[in-house]
Amino acid sequence: MPRDHHRPVHFTDAEFAAIKGGEDPALVNRVAHETANALLHRVRQDPDPEVVERLVTYTDVHGIEAVAELWARVGAHTLPGALWRIYLMRTVIRQNPDEIAFLFTRGTERIGTIDQAVAGAEQPTGPSEILTLADSILHGLYTGDFAVALDRGAAFCRLAAAGATSVADDSDLTAEERASVLTVRAFRLSELAEDLTAAAALWRRDALD
């Protein structure tokens, strides 16, 4: 259900300069929350397909840094923090869909949970299907059940993390450097999963702001 949020606030040039330079953490936090609330509220009230598509593909045109500038420096268990993490997840997928699809599939083979059904990826899951999944999850933030979209992102991250851990274990003796890289990736994906799960629970309690 769309929720009422704070009204968007107009900012002076000096305030925007402070944001860009990271000189005022309180202002950075304020702008992150204002923009996330205003954007989500506006789009969910009137989910024009063209607008939603532009939002989904925004980082393809402007780069992930454009989203990071607004939302990456606030807490994980906030609305801007959750939005940032879904965009980050999509970017990770798009940077190497072949490897991510492989890790995701390995994860589904290694852990017997409902995460595969929650994530909602087509089977078998190749690069094309994993790219479709990333876009579908982001679409869900703007047009579907917001908490479900976060849960789908968390499920994807858990499966990819499990896959990365499994491949790292296989590589430990023969490709130590690759094993190390995959272990770090698994840890970061697991952190993403935990943050998104927590954000989904907060949203359901009307406490994600």
Results as ranks from 00 to 15, higher is better:
Arg30Val: 01
Arg94Trp: 10
Thr143Arg: 11
Asn37Met: 14
Val52Trp: 03
Asp172Ala: 15
Pro2Lys: 06
Ile64Tyr: 09
Phe102Leu: 14
Arg54Lys: 14
Pro124Lys: 02
Ala207Val: 02
Asp195Ser: 08
Glu15Ser: 03
Pro97Ile: 08
Gly63Lys: 00
Asp172Met: 12
Ala36Gln: 00
Ile137Cys: 01
Ala32Gln: 04
Asp169Ser: 12
Val118Gly: 01
Leu40Phe: 00
Arg110Asp: 09
Leu133Gly: 06
Tyr58Gln: 08
Ala72Arg: 11
His33Val: 04
Arg152Met: 04
Thr197Phe: 01
Ile19Arg: 10
His62Leu: 14
Gly126Asp: 11
Pro2Leu: 09
Ile114Ser: 14
Ala149Lys: 09
Glu69Leu: 15
His10Thr: 13
Thr125Ala: 12
Thr113Gln: 05
Arg44Asn: 01
Val74Pro: 02
Ala207Lys: 05
Thr57Met: 05
Arg73Gln: 13
Gly120Pro: 00
Ala175Ser: 13
Gly140Met: 10
Ala17Cys: 07
Trp203Asn: 07
Leu202Asp: 09
Leu133Ser: 05
Ala119Lys: 04
Ala17Gln: 09
Leu131Trp: 02
Ala198Phe: 08
Ala38Thr: 14
Val51Met: 11
Pro25Cys: 03
Leu159Asp: 02
Ala179Gly: 10
Val148Ile: 14
Ala168Asn: 05
His33Ala: 03
Arg188Val: 06
Thr174Arg: 07
Leu131Lys: 05
Asp60Cys: 06
Leu196Asn: 06
Arg3Glu: 07
Gln123Val: 13
Asp170Glu: 12
Ile114Cys: 04
Glu194Leu: 13
Asp46Glu: 14
Val167Gly: 05
Leu189Ala: 04
His77Lys: 12
Pro97Tyr: 07
Leu141Met: 05
Leu103Arg: 03
Leu103Glu: 04
Pro80Ser: 00
His6Tyr: 09
Leu141Gly: 00
Leu192Asp: 09
Glu194Ala: 15
Gly75Thr: 02
Ala32Glu: 13
Val167Phe: 06
Arg85Met: 09
Val28Ser: 15
Asn37Asp: 11
Leu159Val: 04
Thr174Met: 08
Asp4Phe: 05
Arg110Pro: 07
Leu83Asn: 03
Leu79Cys: 05
Pro2Asp: 05
Phe102Thr: 08
Leu79Ala: 05
Gly153Thr: 02
Gly21His: 08
Glu109Phe: 07
Thr125Leu: 07
Glu194Trp: 11
Asn37Ile: 08
Asp4Ala: 10
Ser136Pro: 01
His10Lys: 13
Phe104Gln: 03
Asp115His: 14
Arg85Ile: 07
Lys20Asn: 01
Ser190Asn: 11
Leu103His: 02
Glu129Lys: 07
Phe187Tyr: 06
Ala121Cys: 05
Leu189Trp: 04
Ile93Gly: 09
Leu131Asn: 09
Thr78Pro: 04
Glu122Pro: 01
Phe156Leu: 08
Asp46Gly: 08
Phe187Ala: 11
Pro97Gly: 12
Asp145Val: 03
Glu129Arg: 09
Ala179Tyr: 01
His5Gly: 11
Asp13Asn: 07
Val74Gly: 03
Ala186Ser: 03
Thr57Ala: 11
Arg106Met: 15
Thr183Ser: 08
Leu70Thr: 14
Ala164Pro: 01
Gly107Trp: 00
Gly153Arg: 00
Phe16Asn: 02
